[in-house]
Structure formats: C-alpha cells, structure tokens
Amino acid sequence: MQIWNDPRASTRLRKWLYLLIAVCLLVSLGKFVLQASLFPVKQIQINGKLKHISQDQLQFVAQNKVIGDTLTLDLNQVKNSFEELSWIKEAEAKRHWPDTLEITIVEKKAIARWKEGGLVDSDGNWFEANTDEELPIFDGPKGSESQMKLMYEELTKTLQPEQLKVKALYLTDRNAWQVRLDNDILLKLGTDDALKRVDMLKTVWRKYLEAQASDIEYIDLRYSNGFALKMRSEPDKPVLG
C-alpha cells in the first residue's frame, strides 16, 4: 500500500515535513542574527576610581579584546581581558540593551616596592608595575610577599603611636626580621616574637631613645631582657634591664 493512499500516514508525513522546515528556518534565522551583528556595541562605559590606568590602555583593550555584539559578547572573556592589565585587581562586565557595555574596574593598591622590582599590593600579591608613590621597600625571599605584608601592617599599627614609620622591611632566608625606620634607625628583631620586641621598644622609646634618635645606627632587640644600641658616634652600647 502506497503511503499517499493512506490518509493518516500522509497527514503524519506532512506534519513531520512542516516541523523539519520550521526547524531549518529557525536555524537559518539564528545564524543570520549571529552573523549580521544586529546589536553592535556602540558605547563602552567604564566605572571606577582610576589612578594608575591610562585611557590609552583601556581603549586598547576595548578595541582589540571586545569581540562580538551586545547579544554574542562573552562577558567572562571581556572581564579577563581587562584584568590582564597589571593595575587592575578586578573587572566586572555587564551588557545594557541595545548597544552598551558597562565595565566596572577596581584598581590594585600598592603598599610596597619589591626590592628586585615590581610592587606588592594590599592583598600581599606581587605584580609588575611602576609608580611614583613613596612606598616602603620589601626585601625577602621569593614567595614571602604575603607574609611580609602582614608583618608590615602589624608594625605600622604598633609604631604609629610613636610617630614612627617603616621605611624598609627585611626578611632573611632564615626567617629573621629587620626593620629600617623612616628616621634611618635599623631594628634587629630576630626570628621569634618580633612584634613583642617592638612592643618592648615602645615602652622606652619616648623616655630614653627619642632624644638621641639621630645618633642611633641600630637597635638590637634580640635580647631576652633588654636591647643593645649601636650609636653612630660610639661602639656598641648594651642596655639591659
């Protein structure tokens, strides 16, 4: 029996043919929409407090990395492209119909210079960049940036009441700490209880040491019951008690 002589079979076949034609039309329409760029990105709006990132850098990323129109744009790819810039900590991309891309940028905050080059940010991460800001120097083993960042923050908090600042922070391969203050005095803190040793220094700084600070070369705080001074004009002078 031929199918055309079977009304029910013929009806089912026509339905399948109509469905196939509809699917083909939808696929063709979809390809047309994707290829025709019906929603081109006409405006890129950049938000954020930008201090170190130039407009030229942002424009380069926008022109070379933003690929596609508002409909087909890969927002994660856009985000990652902006975050490749050394000063960008985080970027967020949003589309606004019909033709706008919004980029929100958070810059990194540099807290120190790494002696061998580059900077350390407020999260304790090294990154390659330059700045004219006056920053302390971190000098330590590779990979110790986060550890040094935490020590720097604690030292800053501890020394602030005495109006002393960290000019340079050193960490040896044996995990011993030294601090160069902004008055050029070197503090030798050793490996254990470094912050407790700085607290001990605070108890005598204003009363005994501040007045002669310009003549102090270093203060060795590695003693269990006191400290030693090296005066620029005298030999080592232990002060115990």
Rank of each mutant, 00 (worst) to 15 (best):
K115Q: 12
L101K: 00
Q178P: 03
K89R: 15
S37Y: 00
E234Y: 02
Q163G: 07
E107H: 01
V166A: 00
E162S: 10
D69Q: 09
K115L: 11
H96D: 02
K115V: 09
P161Y: 11
Q45M: 13
I67Q: 14
T100I: 06
A93W: 03
M200P: 00
D139T: 03
T11H: 07
E90Q: 14
D56C: 01
S54A: 06
T100M: 04
W87A: 04
A228E: 03
Q77I: 00
E154D: 15
E134K: 01
N125G: 06
D193V: 00
H96F: 12
L209G: 04
N175M: 04
V66Q: 13
K149H: 10
P238V: 09
I111T: 08
M231P: 03
N125M: 11
W97R: 02
A211Y: 09
K109C: 01
V204G: 07
L58V: 11
M151G: 04
L187N: 03
Q160N: 08
E90Y: 11
L29A: 15
K142M: 06
H96R: 02
F60H: 12
W205Y: 15
S224T: 15
N76W: 04
D220G: 09
D132Q: 10
D56L: 10
D184I: 04
W205D: 11
V106W: 06
E92N: 13
L25S: 14
M148N: 02
I219M: 10
S37G: 05
I219D: 00
K149D: 03
I216T: 04
T100S: 05
E210F: 09
Q212P: 03
L119Q: 09
A9N: 06
G190L: 05
V239S: 12
E102P: 01
A36R: 02
K230H: 08
E90W: 05
T156I: 06
N64E: 09
A36C: 10
D123S: 07
M148L: 10
Y218S: 12
A91E: 08
V179A: 11
W97C: 01
I88P: 05
G190N: 07
E84I: 03
E128D: 14
Q178E: 08
D184Q: 15
E134F: 08
V61C: 09
R197A: 14
F138G: 05
L159W: 08
A211H: 13
Q63R: 14
A93H: 06
V66P: 14
P98T: 13
L19F: 12
F227E: 00
Q63M: 08
N225R: 10
K94S: 12
G140K: 05
K94R: 15
